[in-house]
């Protein structure tokens, strides 16, 4: 174990960590904004509306993220002329844009599916009560359904965010210098493979469990009204599950 290499590459790795955090935050935020309407449209009674949405969700959940990334980053090259004409090529030739776009669409699909389940899990009585009070349409969604659905979805959404954080490591394959990208670059020039990848692994561990702690804290807050005055039950599942 060559500790000196690890120490020397730490500043660069921390720079990579910053990119990892940035890409995760961007994709999670935009993905959530897209996911909410998708989840609502997914439950629309009209097949002409829910079927395309379901197709989108099915595609992004049914194919590997790497394929999606290559499809957007390298695949867009096949249409570079057309994209140039509409002025979008400047965006699509950037690995950063393609990386964030792919991760955003991917997490939007997964999150929409989580939210759909949560919306369906909102007790019927609550919706009926709201309707009886005269609420309907947007007001009903905004005041009753969505707050409840978010609370129900939170544990699954926590997992999704953790998964996305780990999935950002794929952007290193399209030349971005996130934690994995920096580790790979330095490892290839110094041959210190295990030193760097182990350091990268530790950095991800810190990020993942740090984020998990934050999300658990929020979950604790969200369920405040459900807790008895002195409740010591804790979640037995420690660590991220599958999405």
């Amino acid at each position: 174990m060559d500790w000196q290499i690890i120490v020397d590459s730490l500043p660069e790795l921390i720079g990579g960590m910053w990119l990892t955090i940035q890409i995760t935050a961007l994709s999670v935020a935009i993905g959530l904004v897209i996911a909410v309407p998708l989840a609502i449209l997914r439950l629309h009674p009209n097949p002409a509306i829910w079927m395309p949405v379901y197709g989108f969700i099915f595609f992004f959940r049914g194919t590997p993220l790497l394929v999606q990334l290559f499809l957007i980053y390298y695949g867009s090259g096949q249409f570079s002329d057309a994209l140039q004409q509409v002025g979008l090529w400047i965006l699509f030739r950037e690995a950063y844009f393609c990386g964030v776009l792919t991760l955003t669409l991917n997490t939007a699909a997964y999150t929409a599916e989580i939210l759909r389940g949560a919306i369906q899990g909102v007790p019927k009585g609550e919706v009926e009560a709201a309707r009886a009070c005269g609420m309907g349409g947007r007001l009903l969604y905004r005041r009753i359904i969505m707050p409840k659905a978010f609370r129900l979805a939170w544990p699954a959404y926590t997992n999704e965010v953790i998964f996305l954080l780990q999935a950002t490591s794929l952007v290193s394959v399209i030349t971005l210098m996130d934690i994995t990208g920096v580790a790979s670059k330095i490892a290839a020039s110094t041959f210190a493979f295990y030193e760097l990848y182990l350091t990268a692994a530790v950095m991800y561990l810190i990020l993942v469990y740090g984020l998990l702690a934050v999300f658990k804290r929020i979950e604790y807050r969200l369920s405040g009204h459900l807790r008895a005055a002195k409740d010591t039950t804790t979640d037995s599942q420690q660590g991220p599950a599958l999405r």
Binding site: S169, L170, Y197, A201, V208
Partner: peptide, 14 residues
């Protein structure tokens, strides 16, 4: 807690 990609690279090259 560690991305698959990092573990794959760690095993194959490390």
């Amino acid at each position: 807690g560690v991305p698959e990609l990092v573990l794959i690279l760690l095993v194959y090259y490390g």
